[in-house]
Write a protein that binds this DNA or RNA. Structure first.
Length: 467
RNA sequence: GCCCCCAUGGACUAGCGGUUAGGUCACCACCCUUUCAAGGUGGUAGCGCCAGUUCAACUCUGGCUGGGGGCACCA
């Protein structure tokens, strides 16, 4: 059975690139009727962030990526890692290193200055077992794995055969002086212990894979299949990062992107179907996703396309559901959201225009509050023109007499008036729109008037005429 | 500096020796229309370069160039 995992480190938020990795693992697992496990890689105490794990679970849940286990927490498994490190030490596949961080840094700087590859110089590797044991009782130390000076190759599911030479690779620290393992050791141990069959991760891990392969070899374990996903990129083609835009999934959620749209969009960054289909439900993704159809080259995260796709999903939502999802955003803008039915009607008139949920408050603001803001350009262009006030006065009188203030009635009366005065309909429609909403663009005029109601419409018309 | 990966329009991509190089976003034009959208139709724009293999290369091989990633007691 296929078993995969998503293994983020809790640094405060879920990175978009992390979401892509999680998604592909999830899809691969579901497609193959396997398991999708979650593991928290919190072995770096210096980067510990309070509440990050909870936030991570929350956002994963928002994305709809449900996992099949109680998450493995690495910081709670220190004894397991230590046991495995000791095994390596005993077998002489690893050695204690007593070099201080200061010495290592100095060494590295010299190597860089000399333009040499930076690599541990092997000082502590030469220590005898007796010396090492003795020093271990007096000093803190790290443990390094012994790299093998041999060719290491593996068959990456996405990239095919990849070769490295062990002699060029450093003796990686696998246990830090604080007793915590480094990524490399913890990762290999946990992957093996939880029966991971496929490691699907970002390309940034490609060059550390030989280290992992050697560890598997030392433990006498067979390694899982590796699939290294292409990176997600900034517009300048560098690895997707903060500074160049939003990078946290939470940011996109808070900006009003739908989970469905984000998932759909992300799925297409490095994977595609033969027919280049764009819109997929999650079920469809599960059905169609294979690693064979993943690409190898990095993909720029294109906000424009995400926005388009979000609009697609918003238009497909029922008014009921759209309203439900928009309410937090309306509320955040300080409006009363108690009248659900009324909000529904407002949103129904603007659905086609909504790109993100955060657009909603502004699109319906003239329904929500009475002191509307008049767009200056609109006033100049439409209202402050000769004859317009006269037209608005007439219209106000006509509207005042309408008993049934419905879309149909208002439109009939307005058109009748236009005909009687030989006016083009647009000569009336535009001024009325601006007078009532403050802007030149908005929903279908007569639907808007009906929803606003006779009283408000007359009040706003009179206000404009008065001024 | 060393190691590794990658390369189709501005962006995401299809293509797996013979195609008028297809789709999506964006952009432009037109249509629809009371505005803005949405929708419809059409359009601009692409195989990084050089060799080789082959009757035939976007497609296979090599080199070059370009871009990216990695080289921490971070993941």
């Amino acid at each position: 059975m296929v078993i995969v995992r998503f293994a983020p480190s809790p640094t405060g938020y879920l990175h978009i690139g992390g979401l892509r990795t999680a998604l592909y693992n999830y899809l691969f697992a579901r497609h193959n009727k396997g398991k999708f496990l979650l593991r928290i890689e919190d072995t770096d105490r210096t980067r510990y962030v309070e509440g990050a794990v909870e936030e991570l679970l929350k956002i994963l849940n928002w994305c709809g990526l449900e996992y099949d286990n109680t998450p493995t927490i690495q910081s709670q498994r220190l004894d397991i890692y230590k046991k495995h490190v000791n095994e390596l030490l005993e077998k002489d596949f690893a050695y204690r290193c007593f070099c201080t961080p200061e010495r290592l840094e100095e060494m590295r700087n010299i190597q860089i200055a000399k333009k040499q590859p930076s690599k541990y110089d092997g000082t502590c590797k030469k220590l005898s077992k007796q010396e090492s044991d003795k020093m271990a009782s007096e000093k803190t130390f790290t443990v390094r794995m012994k790299m093998l000076a041999e060719e290491i190759s593996f068959n990456d599911v996405i990239r095919g055969e990849v070769k490295f030479h062990g002699s060029l690779i450093d003796d990686q620290i696998i246990l830090k002086s604080d007793g915590y393992p480094t990524y490399h050791l913890a990762n290999v141990v946990d992957d093996h212990l939880t029966g991971i069959t496929h490691v699907i991760r970002g390309e940034e891990w490609l060059s550390s894979t030989p280290k992992h392969i050697i560890l598997y070899k030392y433990f006498n374990w067979t390694h899982p299949a590796f699939a290294h996903l292409p990176l997600l990129l900034n517009p300048d083609k560098s690895k997707l990062s903060k500074r160049q835009g939003d990078v946290a999934v939470e940011d996109y959620r808070d900006k009003g992107f739908l989970q469905e749209a984000l998932i759909n969009y992300i799925s297409l960054l490095g994977w595609s179907t033969e027919d280049s289909q764009q819109i997929f439900s999650k079920e469809e993704l599960v059905e169609k996703f294979t690693l064979e159809r993943c690409g190898k080259s990095g993909a720029i995260f294109d906000l424009q396309k995400l926005i388009w796709m979000n609009g697609e999903y918003i238009r497909k939502l029922s008014i009921e559901e759209l309203t439900r999802r928009a309410i937090p955003f309306i509320q955040k803008s300080g409006f009363d959201v108690s009248d659900f039915e009324f909000l529904k009607k407002c949103i129904a008139l603007e659905q086609d225009k909504i790109k993100t949920l955060s657009d909603v408050p502004n699109l319906i603001v003239f329904f929500l509050k009475d002191d509307i803001i008049y767009d200056e350009k609109a006033m100049l262009k439409v209202i402050k023109k000769e004859g317009v006030i006269e037209i608005l006065k007439n219209i106000t009188d006509i509207y005042a007499k309408i008993q049934n203030f419905t879309t149909q009635e208002i439109e009939n009366e307005t058109r009748k008036y236009a005909e009687s005065k030989s006016l083009k309909t647009s000569q009336i429609f535009h001024p009325v729109r601006v007078a009532v909403s403050g802007r030149t663009e908005g929903p279908s005029l007569f639907h808007m008037l009906e929803l606003l109601g006779k009283e408000k419409v007359l009040f706003r018309l009179n206000k404009i005429i008065g001024e």
